[in-house]
Design a binder for these strands. Structure first.
Lengths: 209, 209
DNA sequence: GAGCTTTCCATGGCAATGTGATGCCATAGA
DNA sequence: TCTATGGCATCACATTGCCATGGAAAGCTC
């Protein structure tokens, strides 16, 4: 029942229907009090949606095949973050709209953890300086991605702004010590996941989901 | 009357009181319909608040004394952007929360315009490559700042994350062609506006406002 | 100045919202 | 079979944004 309501809420969010206590239970044969039993109120519904969003994002990151090139790995994680946000823009907004609380933060940490692991690989593989802080690099990458995608999702910046991810990430990783030319190549490879939504039309119908 | 209501709304937002049609007019001696006359509804109030936020930001940027060093100028604009957001976090959230519409975009453009002017100065002054695109650099700087401040304001990242502005901006501007050492110096100088909230306690009481 | 129009906004009510008190009842444990 | 626990349906409430109505003031024409 709980998951049924949650999925229904996620679907309504995706389809841009207003999520209201009554509209949420309408047609499910269940009454409004059920929402209070399972979520403790509408706030709880939004919180659950937020967590669901982070969980889905973490799953997506986990499902990535890790390339041999650690820098490409790092950027691929960043790209997956961006793609996820673009595919579920409303969910993304919910995830960062309100002032998040601590349990949400844990889920967010998981996301950051993926990037940190890749950043450590970069250092261990000698791609960035030995004394560079991988966690800091991961945070910087995350910050950049969040900035880009946040502006695009809220339509302040056009979708073309996504392309700036390449020079930005290249600048950040190069600053951490990577060789400029190699870095550029790795970044472009890792960022490639962003290409399909711009170029191809069909052929992607057999993807996940 | 309109500005009185708008200022009242801004104050309520600042003081974290819920802004409601009735709470907005309560005590003003005016009725709810006045809000419809002046704003066309609560949506209009939020839109007006958004625009007010952009206007205030633009004024703040305009009031900056432009330093001789163009890179410092660029970064000072970025820092002012961040400081403004930190001083009025709720207003900042409103500015980017909803899907903004076109008239809001104009105001946002003004903000970007300030950075673009500074970026052009950087190119004309020979600080970045001649074939570098100043507008792109300005957008990148904006993106980075928005990413940082957005994470900090929504409490996803700690306030310490603000410090990453220096290496990030240095990386971005260096990538555009500036000399690394000089860039670092300019960025630190421009970013200095962020220092007070961390360090000093008094002595800043005679500042603006 | 009288009459007409227009603009502004106070009154009051409406539908929809989130919330919660009350109590029914199915299930499980004795 | 009796009972007790917990899930949830029913119903009522306060509050929300919105607006139809109408009154009052201001402007315009003659």
């Amino acid at each position: 029942m709980r998951t049924q309501l949650l999925e229904r809420a996620a679907r309504m969010l995706r389809e841009r229907e207003p999520i209201t206590l009554r509209s949420l239970v309408a047609g499910t044969g269940v009454s409004t009090m059920a929402v209070y039993t399972y979520f403790g109120g509408m706030d709880g519904v939004w919180r659950a949606l937020r967590q669901e969003g982070f969980t889905r994002l973490a799953a997506r990151l986990e499902a990535l095949v890790v390339p041999a090139d650690p820098v490409e790995d790092l950027v691929a994680g960043a790209a997956a973050y961006v793609v996820n946000a673009l595919e579920h823009p409303d969910l993304y907004r919910v995830m960062f709209d309100a002032t998040v609380d601590l349990e949400d933060l844990e889920a967010a940490e998981a996301t950051l953890g993926h990037l940190e692991r890749a950043a450590r690989r970069c250092r261990d593989g000698g791609r960035i300086a030995e004394d560079a802080d991988p966690d800091r690099l991961a945070t910087e990458v995350w910050t950049v991605c969040h900035g880009i995608v946040s502006l695009v999702v809220s339509r302040v910046a056009s979708r073309r702004t996504l392309a700036s991810g390449i020079p930005l990430l290249a600048a950040v990783i190069t600053a951490a010590g990577d060789d400029p030319a190699a870095c550029r190549r790795s970044v472009e490879a890792g960022w490639a996941a962003l290409r399909p939504p711009q170029g191809s039309t069909a052929t992607a119908s057999t993807s996940t989901r």
